[in-house]
Design a protein around this nucleic acid. Sequence first.
DNA 1: CTAAGTTAGTTGATACTTCACACTAAGCCT
DNA 2: AGGCTTAGTGTGAAGTATCAACTAACTTAG
Lengths: 230, 230
Amino acid sequence: MEPTDENALKPIASVDLVVLALSEHGLQVLLIRRQADPFRGAWALPGGWIHTDEDPDLDAAAARVSREKTGVETPYLEQLATFGSAGRDPRGWSVSVGYVALLPADEVAGRAAESTDTAWHAVTGDGVAVPLAFDHASILRAGLIRLRAKVEYTSLPVHLLPAGFTLGELQAVYERILGRRLDKSAFRKRIAEVDFVEPVPSAMRRGSNRPAQIYRVKPGLGTAFFDRTI
Amino acid sequence: MEPTDENALKPIASVDLVVLALSEHGLQVLLIRRQADPFRGAWALPGGWIHTDEDPDLDAAAARVSREKTGVETPYLEQLATFGSAGRDPRGWSVSVGYVALLPADEVAGRAAESTDTAWHAVTGDGVAVPLAFDHASILRAGLIRLRAKVEYTSLPVHLLPAGFTLGELQAVYERILGRRLDKSAFRKRIAEVDFVEPVPSAMRRGSNRPAQIYRVKPGLGTAFFDRTI
DNA sequence: CTAAGTTAGTTGATACTTCACACTAAGCCT
DNA sequence: AGGCTTAGTGTGAAGTATCAACTAACTTAG
């Protein structure tokens, strides 16, 4: 347990983010083209070293990386898992703490065209079409598994919607991520049970049909858990 | 993302284990009394530095620590979460990857009296009666939450039993961890549904009553998930 | 040798939940 | 006015949980 040899044994420590958003074309993940070796020119998850001099803790490091790399203070950030091995980074034994970040749909367009080296990529199955640097394909896969698992029994998908949304839109998000249709009345019953949204008074989504009540998440509540599955 | 300054920014990286077992008196966690500063003399979770020269990856580091500190190759080892901050270790910014290990009940007695500096402590609520070094109380709490959550919907508690067990014993493990009684017929139905155990031919637990069929986990299967909850 | 005690393992009756689908409501468009 | 679309609700059949009783197979006491 004792440090026989100081820095020699310290692994490289970084934070990598799986930033996800939902567009009309499905789940999108934010990738950055690497400017430097190793894997120069390859797409990678946004990530960065832990700055021991400025990051108070891991969550803060992840939030800082999110801000720096994506220009966005992601409203939802959750630790995923930690990936560490001798071979995942050619520069040496490295540890990467993976995080999942969810972004509302209305943030996606703005962030997309900002730079040619930052782009949203469509998620197909458990990955993306392009090869990823390091073991980022594994981290992405783990992030998708986590998201899909939690969608089954939590209110997590609200973070993929803007602050105001209709129940129909919320149900559509669940259906898109799960890849299956949900029964409308059962869905609404679940949402009512866990009681994490409230109608915004007299706010209605209008269209060429019956207007829909707009809801927002009740302030001060964390992620809600359903009794069973959605 | 690039390493401006080599080792100066590397945090200290270690692995800490929440080793749990179930005795007649309830859940027990394996603790080690620290021999060195910081927190000399305090109880701590078994843990150790990542050895970048001998550990191929994090899971291997956890397995090695388990072997070295507890003398046991824990059959079940699962990554829990990673704890990292400037203040959790007085020696500097440190990252600890937490693992949960489950030990069969029949291993507990052997490991207990091995050394005065290694002891099983009863889990009460979400912790132990003694104060723990570093942020180990938080890691332990997270481990217990993880265990209790997974017991609701997975076959994980089999790892707290020896290789052969009766369905009554398995149900008792679930009941002890969950702290509530389960219905016998519903329990057996669940177990049959997920189909992760098989009867050991003509192996019976005998006592002063009707003998019970002994089961074992089907070889080659990972943790099984129930459709609903147990 | 029999009856009582104990735990194993199964069965069934009732209450509740889920599921699929149909229905009504309220707007726009032609 | 009538048709189209999406919002939101209701309803009956099917499935599931819950509780409790039942039979089975052993040991032990007498």
